[in-house]
């Protein structure tokens, strides 16, 4: 009995030793020498692997950062939107560099063609993917630029920052958004834009991307931008540009004065997270809803609709 035990032990021990020696030499032979800074940078990154920086994953971003630091002595054009300034500072510190602060961004849905504003004239029956529906037809509400409401952006979001509002049929961005840009790529109509988050989350933007002329645009959606240029004329900061019957507010130039919001005849310019205005003709009810949205820091299309003083036609 003992003999068997000893044989087994000896065999195993010998096998172990031989294999260990082989492993050692193989490991030496195939050793990959890697810059330790890559590991360090990688460690500092959020590990979301979302691709928001434009590289396939955090590891790749770390490699590119190290390479850029070696070759150009800067990190220009490299930014981790998820980690934000804190992470980029850490990365820069590891690589012995400095980075300029970047203002945080957030995804903004530039369509307010809710079920009420752009009533469905057709019924789509098929797989729930915008990319396919986009090829098939203009949309249930008829607007060829508007949100199809099938949620490709929601599927693309790795951060649980988007959901579809069943009431309006539009996607809603919440404050979990890290501006990775996945939804911007996913939207076949280019409705979602990355905009500056703004001071205290205050944002003003044109909630429409329809480039049609006023008449056809308004036919499909009551809150469409009709390209009337009123906002363009009223803006004291030259922040608004008109292009193809569509107003666009440059978030770098906008000083959040809110003059354009009042001017817009179709209520397609939205303001978010502002304190309530002094009540003019505004019903008290709408103002209270707006207050709620200030606290939540969440934009929804319903609230945005309530922000508007004029009753909808």
């Amino acid at each position: 009995m003992n003999e068997v035990l000893i044989y087994a032990l000896v065999t195993l021990a010998m096998l172990g030793t031989v294999l260990a020696v082989i492993l050692y030499f193989v490991a030496q032979k195939f050793k990959v020498i890697e810059d330790p800074r890559i590991d360090a940078v990688d460690e500092a990154l959020p590990k979301a692997n979302c691709g928001g920086c434009g590289y396939p994953g955090c590891r790749n971003f770390a490699e590119v950062s190290v390479k850029s630091a070696d070759e150009h002595k800067n990190l220009d054009g490299l930014n981790c939107p998820v980690g934000g300034n804190d992470v980029m500072k850490q990365v820069a510190a590891i690589l012995g560099l400095e980075v300029a602060e970047k203002d945080p961004m957030i995804a903004v849905v530039r369509c307010n063609g809710s079920k009420a504003n752009s009533p469905a004239k057709l019924q789509y029956d098929g797989p729930s993917t915008c990319a396919f529906a986009q090829n098939l037809f203009a949309g249930e509400g008829g607007c060829p630029h508007g949100c199809l409401g099938l949620g490709d952006c929601v599927v693309s979001c790795d951060f649980d920052a988007l959901h579809m509002d069943p009431e309006t049929g539009l996607p809603v961005v919440n404050d979990k958004c890290v501006a990775c840009g996945a939804c911007v790529k996913a939207c076949p109509r280019g409705i979602i834009e990355m905009r500056l988050k703004g001071r205290k989350d205050k944002r003003i933007y044109v909630c429409c991307i329809n480039e049609e002329k006023g008449g056809p645009a308004k036919k499909n959606c009551v809150v469409a931008c009709i390209g009337c240029s009123k906002c363009f004329k009223v803006c004291p900061h030259d922040a608004i540009v008109m292009n193809n019957n569509l107003a666009y507010i440059d978030d770098e130039k906008c000083k959040l004065c809110r003059k354009c919001v009042e001017e817009c005849p179709t209520n397609s310019i939205h303001e978010l997270n502002f304190p309530p205005r002094k009540p003019k003709a505004e019903p008290a009810e709408a103002a209270s809803v707006k207050e709620k949205s200030v606290g939540a820091g969440v934009e929804t299309a319903t609230e945005a609709k309530n922000n508007q003083s004029e009753p909808l036609a």
């Binding site: 004239k121 057709l122 019924q123 789509y124 029956d125 098929g126 396919f132 098939l136 249930e140």
Partner: peptide, 8 residues
């Protein structure tokens, strides 16, 4: 009535 739209 509203038309249904779907792929072939």
């Amino acid at each position: 009535s509203t038309f249904t739209i779907s792929g072939s």
